[in-house]
Design a protein around this nucleic acid. Structure first.
Lengths: 121, 121
DNA sequence: CTGATATACAACCATATGGTTGTATCAGTC
DNA sequence: GACTGATACAACCATATGGTTGTATATCAG
C-alpha cells in the first residue's frame, strides 16, 4: 500500500509563483508566523495567507502552533519528491544518449547493417 | 551580461499539468510530431497543441521542422534549470541543519552560555 | 493545380487563480 | 470578561488556463 501518490500538479503549481517560492525559501530557515511572512511582500496579509494555504495543500509547508502564531516551515520531503521527478527525466535523457551511443558504435562496426530510415509516413 | 534569467514561473507552471509532464517525458526519447503526440491523449489536437505551445514558451521543448511535421524534443537545459533551483533549496536546508548542529555542539560544550530563548513577542 | 496531411491560430466557454476588503474565530494579556 | 494580536475564511473582481470548434497556412503526393 502506498501513502497517496505525490500530487505533482499541486506541487509544481505551488512553485509557479515567485512569492510562494520565496515563502518556501524563507520557511526553510526562518521561524516566522504568517503575519511576519506577510510583512516581506507588497500585498495584503490575506493574499499571503492564501499563498501559504496553497503551499500547505501542496504539502510543501506545514504550520505549527506556537503561542498565538502559526510558524511556517517548509517540508523537505515534498521538495525532494519534486526534485526526484526532474531527476527521472534527466535519467531518461541519459538513457537515450546511451542508446544513441550504442547505436553509433554498432553502426560504425557494421555500416551495411543499416536498414534504418525509409519508413515512409 | 546574462542570457535572460530563467523564467521559473513559466517553467514550473508548465510542469503543473499531467499531460504536459507526459509530453516532456515522451519528447525526451521519441521523435514525434504534434499530431502523433496528440494521439496519446484523450483530448483534441488543438488542446495538445496548446500544451506544446506552453512548454515551448517555457523553453522546455523545441520544435524542429522535419518534412511537414514539427518534431518535438525536450530541452535538457530547461530541465536542469528547474532542478537546480530545487537543489538550492535543499542546500539551504542542509546549511540550516548544519547551523543547528553547531549550535547544539556549542551548547553541549558550555551549557551555561545559553542566553537564548526569552525573546518575548 | 488539387487534395490530403500537419500545423497554427482565433473565438468562445467554464473554471481556476491572485488579488482585494470585510467579518469571524481564537489565544494570550489586562 | 474585555481587548488586542494572529489567523482564518467568505465574497467579490479581473485575468489566466484548459478545453472546445472552426478556419487558415504550409508541405508533400498525384
Amino acid at each position: 500500500m502506498q501513502i497517496a501518490p505525490p500530487d505533482f500538479d499541486r506541487v509544481f503549481a505551488a512553485f509557479a509563483d515567485h512569492t510562494r517560492r520565496d515563502i518556501v525559501r524563507r520557511a526553510i530557515s526562518a521561524e516566522e508566523g504568517v503575519l511576519e511572512l506577510a510583512s516581506h511582500y507588497p500585498m495584503s496579509f490575506a493574499a499571503v495567507q492564501k499563498h501559504v494555504a496553497v503551499l500547505e495543500r501542496a504539502g510543501l509547508i506545514t504550520k505549527q502552533r506556537i503561542g498565538r502564531r502559526r510558524v511556517v516551515r517548509t517540508n523537505l520531503e515534498a521538495l525532494l519528491v519534486a526534485r526526484r521527478l526532474l531527476d527521472q527525466y534527466e535519467e531518461l535523457w541519459r538513457a537515450r544518449i546511451d542508446r544513441m551511443d550504442e547505436l553509433i558504435a554498432e553502426t560504425a562496426g557494421a555500416i551495411d547493417t543499416v536498414e534504418t530510415k525509409a519508413k515512409k509516413r
